[in-house]
């Protein structure tokens, strides 16, 4: 369950369960995830694998608080201050953590009309207090690394291909260098070359201490980065497995 490295965890999940209650369907219940537990240390990469419907995305969304966990604990150690249970923390606290420390790459880029690619990527930096110019500069550098062609930078990404949009999506999160990074099928629409670039970026984030959890239906492309695997099963709890630990 726990990574064998000696460093203290940055994230500790215990008994995370998410059940959806659909009042529009007469109160029918749908299980998201059930009794998930794991620890994650800084600089470590944890992969969540499993078939569709096993609740992998639910785990991520519970950590990010897009979902309200039904039960369980999600203990996070922020850069400053005492540890906090993300499942129960005040929304305003969560917003601060999201802005500064916890990044989330969704499966698909949510497009905002009229905002250019550069601005999409730079926005998070601006919210952290970076000035407009520097923010755009850093954004361009990241876009270059992810091989998004420069002539697209001033265009809103609404008409991009899936792969290009996803690279913008990644750029937006990676440029903030979060302490905890949540990835939901980040490489699904990318070709091999792009995947290699992403792996490179993730590796350097790991080196600088970022803890990463990634949902993958196929772990193989990112296998070199992975330090631990949590295998999810539909309808039951998670079974952690993988290199070096049980």
């Amino acid at each position: 369950m726990t990574d064998q490295s000696a460093s203290a965890p940055i994230l500790s999940v215990r008994g995370l369960t998410k059940t959806f209650r659909l009042h529009t369907l007469g109160g029918a219940e749908i299980r998201g995830c059930d009794g998930v537990s794991f620890d994650l240390a800084p600089g470590r990469f944890l992969a969540l694998t499993g078939p569709n419907g096993s609740g992998k995305s639910s785990v991520l969304k519970c950590i990010y608080r897009t979902y309200l966990p039904t039960s369980g604990e999600i203990r996070y150690w922020p850069a400053e201050g005492p540890d906090v249970d993300l499942a129960r923390a005040d929304e305003r606290r969560i917003l601060v953590l999201r802005r500064r420390e916890i990044g989330y790459v969704t499966q698909f880029l949510r497009v905002v009309p009229r905002v250019s690619v550069v601005d999409v990527v730079a926005e998070g930096l601006w919210h952290m207090g970076c000035d407009a110019r520097t923010g755009r500069q850093v954004a361009r550098e990241m876009l270059t690394r992810l091989e998004v062609r420069p002539h697209l930078w001033s265009v809103p990404p609404a008409t991009f291909s899936g792969g290009e949009q996803q690279r913008v999506n990644l750029a937006r999160a990676l440029v903030l260098q979060p302490r905890l990074l949540l990835l939901d099928e980040p490489t699904a629409s990318l070709d091999a070359a792009a995947v290699a670039v992403v792996i490179d970026l993730l590796r350097s984030l790991k080196t600088s201490g970022t803890a990463i959890i990634g949902v993958f239906h196929d772990v193989e492309p990112v296998r070199p980065l992975v330090d631990g695997i949590v295998r999810m099963q539909a309808g039951a709890g998670a079974i952690p497995a993988g290199r070096g630990h049980g």
Binding site: H23, T24, K61, R65, T66, L68
Partner: peptide, 22 residues
């Protein structure tokens, strides 16, 4: 209901919110 916008839209709790979102 009061919460983070993405939570309200993706995991609405109150029956009315669920109705609104759907």
């Amino acid at each position: 209901e009061l919460g983070l916008t993405d939570q309200i839209l993706e995991d609405p709790q109150h029956p009315y919110t669920q109705l609104l979102v759907s």
